[in-house]
């Protein structure tokens, strides 16, 4: 697979709260840090409101003039490419006046598809690779999936994939630790319901926390795997607390009943559960070509420290493996 692997970094850890990371000089420092650590691309995070200048393409236009203007500025700061944008339709939107949409509800599809199209158009303008989407809501909100709701979600994302592919953007499905999709069987079923234009994004930490075997998924679905998120998992959800109400807060942030202080960690974290050299070897065996986005999702401050640690690990371990 490794015809060519490109290394990028997700911006999510620079903006842990609603108000931070709004000023252009903060962007400048963050992207210079990213470049200095050896990463050539970034993954944006779809957001909302004027305090998230990178969260919506129209906000990027306001703050940077245009998509191309933003890319030129990134180039000046040492970042070669925008790799991707992560879009979770379950997040609230000031622009569309909702507190979260469900791909499993047909009434929500029009807004989801319109929003996805806005992001895909931006990604096409900057020459990015893919739109990373959260295909299902959290389990606590959705409950167990059934055939009908899987088909509804498949219809939603097939349409997104078709429109995005028409302008050269891949759409990839990102299964996370809280997702209503809980098993390999469900994933296989869902992939059978979806167009081959829809790919998979494998997130090492999210999958490990949820009890998936990333190596198995990589082998089993390698013809659909088109994107990776590399972050470490420091614990697994062995008590199945993804079922807790408001698990985003109760489990991921508050730690659940075990009070897990941190679910995600740096690539070389001593308590990390993910075998990155092994996974990279498998990716090479399977001739993966595309982006690997490293994340410090919910990492401790300062953000630069984790990025520098991960930069060292990529340069000195993974790239030499």
């Amino acid at each position: 697979m490794s015809k060519h692997i490109r290394w990028g970094y997700a911006v999510n850890h620079w903006k842990p709260g609603f108000m931070g990371f709004a000023r252009r000089e903060e962007h400048e420092r963050a992207f210079k840090v990213t470049s200095a650590c050896g990463f050539e691309g970034i993954e944006l995070n779809a957001g909302t409101g004027r305090w998230d200048p990178l969260g919506r393409p129209e906000n990027i236009d306001i703050n940077y003039g245009s998509a191309r203007g933003f890319l030129r500025q990134l180039n000046d700061w040492g970042i070669e490419s925008v790799a991707s944008t992560f879009y979770d339709p379950g997040q609230m939107s000031f622009e569309d006046l909702h507190h979260g949409l469900l791909p499993t509800r047909r009434d929500d599809h029009a807004i989801i598809q319109r929003t996805a199209a806005i992001h895909a158009q931006f990604l096409a303008e900057v020459g990015a690779a893919c739109l990373v989407v959260r295909p299902f809501p959290s389990y606590w909100r959705e409950g167990s999936l059934n055939a009908e709701r899987m088909q509804i979600a498949a219809d939603c994302w097939n349409k997104v994939a078709e429109s995005s592919a028409a302008i050269g953007i891949n759409t990839v499905l990102h299964i996370d630790a809280l997702s209503a999709l809980r098993s390999v069987a469900e994933l296989a079923t869902f992939l059978n319901l979806t167009s081959r234009q829809l790919g998979l994004a494998l997130d090492t930490a999210e999958l490990a926390i949820a009890g998936f075997d990333t190596f198995d998924l990589c082998r089993r679905f390698h013809d659909r795997v088109r994107h990776f998120h590399f972050k470490n998992a420091l614990a697994t959800d062995s008590l199945q607390e993804f079922k807790l109400a408001n698990a985003e807060r109760a489990l991921l942030q508050a730690g659940g009943s075990r009070k897990v202080p941190r679910w995600f960690g740096e690539l070389e974290h001593p308590d990390g559960l993910v075998d990155f050299p092994g996974l990279l070897a498998l990716m090479r065996e399977l001739e993966y070509s595309g982006w690997v986005i490293v994340e410090s999702d919910k990492g401790p401050l300062p953000a630069a420290a984790a990025m520098m640690s991960n930069g060292w690990y990529v340069q000195h371990v993974l790239r030499r493996a």
Binding site: R29, K32, V33, S35, A36, C37, W77, G78, L301, P302, A303, A304, A305, M307, M308
Partner: peptide
């Protein structure tokens, strides 16, 4: 401020 961020920003300036 913090040392990691200042260090990486200075390193960016050094390289670029």
């Amino acid at each position: 401020g913090n040392y990691p961020e200042s260090t990486a920003v200075a390193a960016w300036y050094m390289k670029n």
